[in-house]
Design a protein around this nucleic acid. Structure first.
Length: 372
DNA sequence: TCTGGGGTCCTAGGACCC
DNA sequence: TCTGGGGTCCTAGGACCC
């Protein structure tokens, strides 16, 4: 049967919630992310609303850069950006209500992240019917939550996802047709001129690799045979061959199983203070265990730690227990044992300062609660 | 520009088993 | 005396996503 898939993406989600909830922020540029500390902060931008984007501020940008751009705007007499730390529990609640709205209209839904969902609209049998469903979902989100979403629709998840990003905010982009042949032509015409970066899974590294070969658009990608892409990128290259042609059979996954739980912390200043690092690590272990016990999982077999140095070199070390464990003591002991070689006092003077440490528990599941 | 914190998936080599 | 092939588990690193 013909598939019709839609992808819904909330517009500037975190910033839009803040603007909605705090009337004094109405119409101002808003940046949710790390504390900018007057330009000295170490984090990044999580979300910038559309006003802040006019200043050249966008997600994943260092918060210090965002601060400078806001200051530059202020010099020109424009309002400086409002920097907020973000209330993630709150965003989670709003997300759940939005997913509930979607689920009242569509049975098969994949909550792909806090602000994204795929919907299987194949049951509506025509693109016109599917469009009506999407319009009513957008409408209900606008009325009940006072937020806007952009939706993309197409014959599979790949096309739907790229289409949802095509017109933002508050967009609805349909790349498909009830007639199969016409549909394939529309998909091809839509994808070909787009930069390869639009394909999910192509990041900065892959983009740069292709750029050296003179490949910038999806059309350029179709020059390569499946074998050539496989040689360049392995298994991922084989599927990229199909993606470049708008082909994707990946299913809607309605239930996800968490595979790991972890925490990491970037220090305000890089440090060699091993007592401080051990204290932080012990605290992070506690918090991971707390998170674990409130989750559906009770035990773990894997522990891994991360150490990031001042120059961003990153080391990981892992250990697997023979039997599942669940107690704080076991986690702290093993995590400490794994980081010790990086903190060795005698070597300390020679060693680089440390920027971040992290702990993660993996291989969850042996003592899972009974399923309904 | 100087790079968060939460994750997932893939690769490659080595150990070990049959 | 010159050596297989397949499968699974483990570790470390890396790319990517929101």
């Amino acid at each position: 049967m013909k598939r019709i898939i839609a992808h819904l993406d909330m517009d500037a989600f975190f910033a839009a919630i803040e603007e909605r909830d705090k009337p004094r922020l109405k119409g101002l540029p808003i940046v949710v992310g790390a504390d900018p500390e007057e330009g000295k902060g170490r984090g990044v931008v999580s979300t910038a609303n559309y006003k802040a984007r006019e200043y050249g501020i966008h997600s994943a940008m260092p918060i210090s850069t965002a601060w400078r751009r806001s200051e530059a705007a202020r010099q020109k007499g424009r309002p400086p950006a409002v920097f907020l730390g973000g209330n993630f529990a709150r965003y989670g609640e709003v997300s759940e209500r939005i997913m509930a709205i979607i689920r009242t209209c569509v049975a098969r839904v994949e909550a792909a992240s806090v602000d994204e969902a795929y919907m299987d609209l194949s049951f509506s049998d025509s693109y016109e019917g599917a469009r009506a469903i999407c319009e009513s979902i957008k409408q209900e989100i606008r009325e009940k939550e006072k937020l806007t979403a952009s939706i993309g629709m197409g014959p599979n998840k790949l096309v739907a996802k790229i289409a949802s990003d095509f017109k933002k905010p508050d967009g609805l982009t349909i790349v498909g047709h009830d007639d199969e042949k016409t549909c394939a032509e529309l998909v091809e015409a839509f994808l070909e001129p787009l930069p390869i970066r639009k394909i999910p899974g192509i990041g900065p590294k892959t983009e740069a690799m292709f750029s050296e070969k003179g490949v910038s658009t999806i059309r350029d990608l179709t020059r390569f045979s499946q074998t050539e892409l496989g040689e360049m990128l392995g298994k991922w290259g084989l599927s990229l061959y199909r993606k470049a042609r708008g082909v994707d059979e990946s299913p809607i996954v309605q239930e996800y199983e968490r595979k790991s739980i972890g925490e990491q912390e970037t220090f305000r200043e890089d440090t060699k203070d091993s007592n401080f690092i051990q204290e932080r690590l012990a605290a992070m272990c506690e918090s991971v265990i707390a998170h674990l016990t409130t989750s559906e999982w009770k035990s773990f077999r894997g522990v891994s730690i991360t150490v990031r140095f001042a120059d961003f070199e990153t080391k990981t070390r892992a250990h697997t227990f023979r039997d599942p464990v669940s107690d704080l003591g076991a986690l702290q002991f093993e995590a400490m044992r794994l980081v010790m070689p990086f903190l060795d006092k005698r070597e300390n003077l020679k060693k680089k300062k440390i920027r971040l440490i992290g702990v993660r528990v993996e291989k969850l599941g042996e003592m899972r609660r009974a399923r309904r």
